[in-house]
């Protein structure tokens, strides 16, 4: 139902590193779920609009009025790596 190759691609898109056994297991589990989901094919939805939201709200806006931002130390505090000014990440290799 779903090939290991496809799962590997999906895992890369989702930034998940799967070991070979994990990959095979994921393919099996996803396969059985996707098989189950196949039952939807029986429903004719040609003329049915997809509903993104469960309620029909529209046009929700905010006025363009500034509010105070977070103190910098509070903004940086939850980060796994930071100095007193910046978040830090491993260097991007171009």
């Amino acid at each position: 139902m779903i090939r290991d190759e496809e799962v590997r691609h999906i895992a890369h898109l989702a930034r998940l590193e799967l070991s070979e056994p994990d990959l095979a297991r994921a393919a099996r589990e996803l396969g059985s779920i996707l098989d189950y989901v196949k039952k939807l094919e029986a429903v004719d939805t040609a003329d049915v609009e997809p509903e993104i939201h469960a309620v029909s709200i529209s046009n929700v806006y905010r006025k363009d009025e500034p509010r105070p931002s977070l103190p910098r130390d509070e903004a940086l505090a939850p980060a796994p790596s930071h100095d007193d000014k910046y978040f830090r990440v491993p260097k991007v290799i171009e």
Binding site: V37, L40, V43, T45, V48, E49, P50, E51, I52, A54
Partner: peptide, 14 residues
């Protein structure tokens, strides 16, 4: 086939 189909079924359920 999946995401949009799911949303269409959602419409039917509603």
């Amino acid at each position: 086939a999946y995401y949009l189909k799911g949303l269409r079924i959602r419409t039917l359920l509603r």
